[in-house]
Simulated scan of single mutants.
Amino acid sequence: MLSPEVLHFKEPASVFKSHKIDKNTCFQKISQFNFVHLITVVLPDTTTIIDTFGEELTSSDYYKILSFNIGDLVTKPFLKNFIDRGNLNLLSINTRIDCDNCIAISSTGKLLLHLDKLTFQTLGLEGKVSHFNNLVKEKYIVTVDLKSDDFKSGKCNYERTKSCLQKLKNFDVILSWEPPEKEICPSSIAKYFSDLGYPVELCKIRHHRKTAHSLMVPVIPNLDEFDDEASANFIEWLGMLCIGGSLNERLDFISTYSIPEPSTYTGEVKILQWRGFFSSKDVARLIKQLEIYFGSNRLWKAVYFQGFSDSPVVWGLNEHHYYTSGDNGSVVIMKGQEYYLCLQKCSNKRYK
Rank of each mutant, 00 (worst) to 15 (best):
L43D: 03
H114L: 06
I235N: 09
G295A: 06
S188R: 07
S325L: 10
L125I: 07
D195A: 12
C102L: 12
I189L: 02
V41F: 02
E229Y: 11
R298F: 08
N69D: 12
I259C: 10
F294R: 08
I189K: 01
R209V: 13
S107D: 12
N157Y: 15
K349E: 15
F171M: 08
Y140N: 08
G127V: 06
H8P: 00
I141T: 10
K169C: 10
P179I: 07
T324A: 11
H320L: 04
I333T: 11
S148M: 03
F132W: 06
I103V: 15
V331M: 09
Y198L: 05
K345D: 14
I271R: 01
E183I: 14
Y304S: 14
L290H: 01
S231A: 13
N222P: 00
L118H: 09
C99H: 11
G71A: 10
K167Y: 07
Y340T: 04
I83F: 00
V142E: 04
S330F: 14
S279M: 09
S106A: 06
R298C: 14
I235E: 11
E159G: 00
L118N: 08
E261W: 07
D172C: 08
E319N: 05
G154N: 04
L7I: 09
E201H: 10
A232Q: 13
S263T: 11
S231H: 01
F132T: 02
K162V: 08
E201C: 05
K349A: 13
F151Q: 02
L118I: 08
G316K: 09
P262Q: 07
I235T: 09
D100L: 02
S106E: 04
S194C: 11
K10Q: 13
N89M: 10
T161G: 01
P221G: 01
N34S: 14
N69L: 10
G295R: 06
K64G: 07
Q289I: 07
F305D: 03
S107M: 09
L202R: 13
W315L: 14
P179E: 05
L290S: 02
V283G: 05
L91N: 04
E319V: 06
I30L: 10
D61W: 06
S148I: 04
L290R: 01
D98A: 11
L88Q: 01
T264H: 01
L196N: 03
H208S: 10
C185Q: 14
C156P: 03
M1Y: 08
T161R: 00
G267A: 15
V136I: 12
C342Y: 15
E56C: 12
S279A: 11
C164M: 07
S163L: 12
K352H: 12
C102Y: 05
F78E: 03
Q32L: 15
E138I: 09
T324D: 11
N87L: 09
R209P: 04
Y304P: 00
V303N: 04
H37V: 00
C203D: 00
D224V: 02
V41Q: 00
T324Y: 13
C342N: 15
D45F: 09
C156M: 10
Q273S: 15
Q273M: 13
L241H: 03
I220E: 00
N328R: 13
Y265V: 06
F278R: 02
R250Y: 11
P4L: 11
H131E: 13
G239Q: 11
K76V: 03
M240R: 12
F193L: 06
N297P: 02
T161Q: 01
S325A: 14
D172I: 06
